[in-house]
C-alpha cells in the first residue's frame, strides 16, 4: 500500500499532517485552549466527525490499533465507516476491545474501562466553544477566554438551579482545564466528566466544521463547574444493565416493543460484552 506514487499515508498529505501536528502540539501545550487549524475536506460531510478523523489521521501510524465508537457502540454505521476508512488508508489493525486499542476515536462517550498511559482518546466535537449559547460573538468569546472571564457560564448554571432546582446540564457539561480554560468536553454525558480528570491517556478534541482543535494532556486537572452548595454529581439511570448487571456504567434506554416495554443496557458495548463474558466464564 505505502510507497506507491501519489499515495499519502492515512489519507492526508504530509503538509497537512505537519500543520495538524503543530496544532496538536500547541493544543497540548495549552490545555483546554482552542487552537484554530486549516481543516481539509474529508470524505464525509461536516457534522459526521471530520475533525476527529483529521486528528486521528495526523497521529496514527502503522503499528497503532484503532477502536472507533459512536455513543459507546462499535457497530453503528458511522463507527463502522470510520474504522473501515482507516483500515484502508492507514493499514492499521482495528479492535473493539478498549484495552487493546492505542487510539480510540469516539463520538459522545468515554469508554467505561479506564484508559492507560500510551493510549490516545480522540473526541469528535460539533461545537468547541462552551460559551457559544451565551455569547454568540466569537470575537467576544475569544476575549473572555483570554481574560478568563467566565462569570457568564456560572450565571447560566445559576439560572439552571433557579429554573430546575439543580444544574440541568445533562451533557456537554462545562469544565475548567488545568485551572485555566473553560472547555466543552464535547457532547459526552455529564456522567463521563469525572473520567477526564487526571486521565492517564492523552485526550485530543477535533471540531472539523468549526476548525478548532484542543487537547488535555495526561494527568491534567479537569473540574466540572458547580456551586459549593450544589456540587457536581454524575447522573446515570438508577438501574442495573439488563445484559451484564453493571450498576456503575452509563446506560442506554432501549425500547423493546411497541407497548412501551423498555430495558436499560450499557451504552459501552465493549464493556458490557466483556462483563458478560466474564460472568459466563465464572459460571
Amino acid at each position: 500500500m505505502s510507497g506507491a506514487p501519489g499515495f499519502s499515508y492515512a489519507y492526508l498529505d504530509e503538509g497537512t499532517k505537519r500543520m495538524l501536528r503543530r496544532t496538536l502540539l500547541k493544543a497540548v501545550a495549552i490545555p483546554g485552549h482552542q487552537v484554530p487549524f486549516g481543516a481539509r475536506e474529508m470524505p464525509l460531510p461536516y457534522g459526521w466527525g471530520t475533525g476527529g478523523i483529521q486528528v486521528t489521521a495526523a497521529v496514527i501510524g502503522p503499528s497503532d490499533v484503532l477502536k472507533v465508537i459512536d455513543q459507546g457502540s462499535d457497530d453503528t454505521t458511522n463507527a463502522v465507516s470510520i474504522r473501515r476508512f482507516f483500515q484502508r488508508v492507514a493499514g492499521v489493525a482495528v479492535t473493539e476491545r478498549t484495552t487493546e486499542a492505542t487510539i480510540i476515536q469516539t463520538r459522545h462517550r468515554i469508554p467505561e474501562t479506564p484508559l492507560t498511559e500510551g493510549q490516545i482518546l480522540v473526541y469528535q466535537v460539533p461545537m468547541p466553544e462552551p460559551l457559544s449559547r451565551l455569547e454568540p460573538r466569537l470575537a467576544e468569546t475569544r476575549r473572555l477566554h483570554a481574560l478568563a472571564d467566565y462569570g457568564l457560564m456560572q450565571v447560566r448554571l445559576y439560572e439552571d438551579i433557579v429554573t430546575h432546582g439543580a444544574i440541568a446540564t445533562a451533557y456537554n457539561y462545562p469544565v475548567i482545564v488545568d485551572g485555566r480554560y473553560l472547555m466543552s468536553p464535547s457532547p459526552i454525558p455529564a456522567f463521563d466528566n469525572p473520567k477526564m480528570h487526571r486521565m492517564p491517556a492523552l485526550q485530543l478534541f477535533g471540531a472539523g466544521r468549526e476548525k478548532k482543535i484542543y487537547a488535555v494532556p495526561p494527568y491534567t486537572d479537569v473540574v466540572s463547574l458547580d456551586f459549593e452548595d450544589h456540587p457536581f454529581r454524575p447522573i446515570r439511570a438508577p438501574h442495573a444493565c439488563a445484559l451484564c448487571g453493571a450498576t456503575d456504567s452509563y446506560l442506554d434506554e432501549v425500547l423493546t416493543d411497541d407497548a412501551g416495554g423498555r430495558m436499560f443496557a450499557c451504552s459501552d458495548t465493549d464493556y458490557c460484552a466483556t462483563r458478560q463474558a466474564a460472568r459466563k466464564a465464572a459460571e
Binding site: 456560572q154 450565571v155 445559576y158
Partner: peptide, 17 residues
C-alpha cells in the same frame, strides 16, 4: 437575581445560597 449576582460570580463567588 442572576443579573445582580453576575458580578459576584465573575469575581469568584461560588455559593449559590
Amino acid at each position: 437575581g442572576g443579573n445582580v449576582g453576575e458580578r459576584l460570580m465573575a469575581s469568584g463567588a461560588r455559593h449559590y445560597g
